[in-house]
Every structure is written in C-alpha cells, then in structure tokens.
C-alpha cells in the first residue's frame, strides 16, 4: 500500500546553512503525524517542500506516490480527494497566518475557493456549520476573533475534501477551549480517512492527537514514533510521586520495598494523590536536545 506521505533523505540549505538534514519518514493513509520542534527547527520548511512551495536541495518527497516539486500541480488536484469527488485537490493546507481576505465575509472567503475548486455551494454551508461559523457567515473576517479565523482557515483547507491535510501550528495562540474545538475538527478529518500532517510546538496537542510524532531539532529528526511509545522509551528513572494529606510530597522508586511504604500510607489513609513519573514529550525533547521546545 502506498504511503500518503513519504520523505526520502530530504535536505535543504538556506543561505549556505543546512535547515533540513536528510529527513526520511513515512505517514500512512488516515494517520495523524505531528512534527514537533521549537521555532526555527525546520517544520514550516518541510511543509513548504511537501506542498510544492519550496524546492528541496536534495532528496525526494512523495504524496500518495506522486513526487512533489516536479509534479506540484498534480499533487494539488485531480486526485479524487477523500470526498471521492473527481477533481478534488490531493492536499489542503491551513497556514499559521490564516491568509484570509479580511474585507470579505466568512462565506465569501469560502465561496471564492469553492469556485476555484468547483465545489457546490451546499458544501460551503455544510462546512461552515461543521466548524461552528454558520451564524457568523456574513461577518467580515476583520471582525472575527483569532479562534474564528483559525476555524475558517481550517474550513477552507478541508472545503474540497483533500486526501492529505497540512496544518501549520493549527492551535497556536488559541485559548484551551478553541484549541479543543480545532482538535475535534482534526479528529473528524481522521475519521473521514484524511491523512493529517501537523506541525506544533505544543506537546500536549501532539500527545492527544497524533498517531505518530517526529521530534525535529536543528533540521534533524531526533526521535520518531507513537507519543506513548516515545515516552516509554525514555522512562529510565521509574518513580512514584505521592502527595500526602499533610501537603508533603514523597518520591519513591519502583521497588518491592516502596510497595510496602505505599501500602502503609494507604492503610493510614494519608495519600491525597499518587502519580507515576514517566516522562512526557517535553522531557524527552529536553533529554535529547538539552533545550526546551518552546525556547
């Protein structure tokens, strides 16, 4: 079975500086891949290469078996799409800066792209309702909140039913509730069989949403795999963290002796909370690179 996205030894130089260093990875159809890394790691560069906006210095990239760059036009159209509609684009993209026409209403923005993609008007209503913007359809984009703009940008990306969705920092700068709404929309796309390639520096977002994550630092993929598995791989110091009713914190190793101590605390009803201290993606990233992801 052909992978939805396939990268082979992608390398890119910018002004003599290596931005991407022999990146290779595969994304299966219907998967969500999260590309995590700090600002300047090369995430947007990789998306631009995949979407044919930028020519890589070396290496090859394929979208549903079609080589990008050489066939940029093909990778953007005539693929049938996840919607099954002939002429639908292969890819849809949500950029980090939205790129919406501010003097146009939400509806007019989608109508413009519906005409370009030759999508029926009924689809505009369907998608605006799905992202919760139907009531605000006649509001000019300049008057929409950031969260609404992000949702509209998402709606435009999925308007024509693409097979592969590129999301560049989809919830960047959004409040938790709006971010959760965007996450819900992304999950709906996955359920519809769409492959999602998203970049983020939000570890929680990646952990919640992604089937696989790739940690990118300095143009190199330093770790790859399902988020839970990555965390397990770096679970060197297995410890238990107990918060006692008196407010005291107790850290215990994963040992038989510690089990006795825990049982003792339980018998005396002294435990408020108990947690294992397996690392999260943030901790893994720090261990691998010596820097925080939001630096």
């Amino acid at each position: 079975m052909v992978n939805a996205i396939e990268l082979r030894e992608i390398t890119h130089y910018f002004d003599g500086k290596m931005v991407l260093d022999h990146i290779s990875l595969n994304v299966g159809k219907g998967e969500i891949l999260g590309l995590l890394g700090p600002s300047g790691a090369g995430k947007t560069t990789l998306i631009r290469i995949l979407t044919g906006q930028l020519a890589q210095t070396s290496g090859t990239a394929y979208l549903s078996g079609i080589e990008t760059g050489k066939h940029a036009g093909k990778t953007r159209r005539n693929a049938g799409g996840a919607s099954g509609r002939a002429g639908a684009p292969l890819t849809g993209m949500m950029t980090d800066d939205c790129g919406l026409y501010e003097r146009f209403s939400a509806y007019e923005n989608l109508h413009l792209f519906a005409r370009i993609y030759n999508v029926p008007r009924s689809r505009i209503e369907e998608i605006l309702r799905a992202v919760g913007l139907w009531e605000a359809r006649n509001t000019a984009v300049s008057k929409l909140s950031k969260g609404m703009r992000q949702r509209l940008s998402f709606a435009r990306a999925v308007l024509a039913g693409p097979q592969i969705l590129f999301l560049d920092e989809p919830s960047c700068g959004l409040d938790p509730q709006t971010a959760a709404e965007i996450h819900g929309l992304i999950r709906q796309q996955k359920q519809a069989g769409v492959t999602v390639f998203l970049t983020t520096h939000n570890m929680q977002e990646a952990t919640k949403l992604c089937d696989h994550t790739a940690l990118l630092n300095g143009g190199v993929i330093v770790e790859y795999g399902p988020p839970e598995e990555i965390c397990r791989r770096y679970h060197h110091q297995k410890k238990l963290l107990l918060r006692l009713s008196g407010g005291e914190n107790v850290v215990l190793p994963h040992t038989k002796e510690a089990a006795e101590t825990v049982a003792d605390y339980l018998r005396r009803e002294q435990i408020d909370t108990i947690h294992s201290t397996e690392p999260d993606l943030e901790t893994v990233f720090m261990e691998l690179t010596g820097r925080r992801i939001d630096q």
Binding site: T51, G73, R76, M93, T95, D97, G99, E102, I116, R156
Partner: peptide, 13 residues
C-alpha cells in the same frame, strides 16, 4: 503581505 496570494497559488491558481 497578507499571504492570501500564497493560499491562492496553493489552490492551483
């Protein structure tokens, strides 16, 4: 400046 041109070109215009 507002990146709308990039989005249009991405839409195969």
């Amino acid at each position: 400046e507002k990146n709308t041109l990039r989005v249009l070109l991405m839409a195969d215009v």
